[in-house]
């Protein structure tokens, strides 16, 4: 575990000294801010529900940029060999990187708490849906990052990693809408796999173990696949 924390810390330093981090956070805040303000002013409702919905799509585009560097940069510069031959286990490397990206995500989401502050200042929003919404957005972002981490382990090119991630996320996102093309049992499976389906209820204030298990499984699966992918480097 200490190895994981050391790696996380090192990774975080790399994140926050690069200008990219600030640009990404600022861009994220501009877009969500415009959506939030527009929705709040337009709908006259002190709720985060619709902001969360927009946030999830914005995260879909932002997360690949956060995750693309994680392992592909190490592969491009060759430092991955050092990491893999050092006395840390693959899973520790992967978790260290993943946790660092999670801290980044939490920072980004944490700044959006300012919106909640505005809502409470001018209205009386319901606390429950905001709590469950943040839980959902966090899990969704974590799943995005886990998928991005996995693709970044596949290639030493950051751009390829990012585009591949976006493509995968998009397919997973719209899977639900494609179900009409398939038979009923296939469509049930496809619609269950769809990311967008599992983020629809949480921002409304409904926590369903189904959604939690889905996100956690997706994250665990990607972490697992990433360690396999790293291991495969040894004999490739």
């Amino acid at each position: 575990m200490r190895n994981v924390l050391t790696l996380t810390e090192k990774e975080l330093r790399t994140y926050f000294v690069s200008p990219l981090a600030y640009v990404v956070i600022a861009a994220f805040l501009v877009v969500t801010g415009v959506f939030f303000a527009g929705i709040f002013i337009g709908s006259h409702q002190a709720t985060m529900e619709y902001t969360f919905q927009n946030m999830s799509v914005i995260l879909l585009l932002v997360s690949p940029m956060l995750a693309m560097r994680l392992l592909s940069e190490e592969q491009r510069s060759g430092t991955i060999e050092l990491l893999l031959t050092s006395p840390v286990r693959d899973i520790e490397v992967v978790l260290g990187k993943f946790f660092a990206s999670l801290v980044f995500l939490v920072t980004m989401l944490g700044l959006t708490l300012y919106y909640v502050l505005l809502l409470t200042r001018f209205g009386s929003p319901e606390a429950g849906p905001i709590l469950s919404g943040y839980l959902g957005i966090f899990l969704l972002g974590a799943a995005f990052l886990a998928i991005g981490l996995f693709t970044s382990s596949l290639t030493s090119n950051q751009v390829v990693a990012a585009f591949l991630t976006i493509a995968i996320l998009l397919v997973l996102w719209v899977l639900d809408a494609l179900t009409s093309m398939f038979g009923s049992s296939a469509s049930a499976v496809l619609s269950y796999l769809s990311l967008s389906k599992h983020i629809s209820d949480l921002p409304k204030g409904l926590i369903d173990t189904k959604d939690l298990i889905y996100f956690l499984s997706l994250i665990v699966a990607c972490i697992f696949l990433t360690t396999r992918s790293l291991e495969a480097r040894r004999w490739r």
């Binding site: 801010g33 303000a37 001018f122």
Partner: peptide, 29 residues
């Protein structure tokens, strides 16, 4: 949760969340 904002409050909500908050991050960077 119906909330009606005055014109000044609307401006405040918009500029503080869509402009100043991101600007703070850039300044930090």
């Amino acid at each position: 949760n119906q909330t009606f904002l005055t014109g000044a409050q609307e401006s405040f909500v918009f500029y503080s969340s869509a402009v100043f908050l991101p600007l703070l991050v850039i300044i930090a960077g």
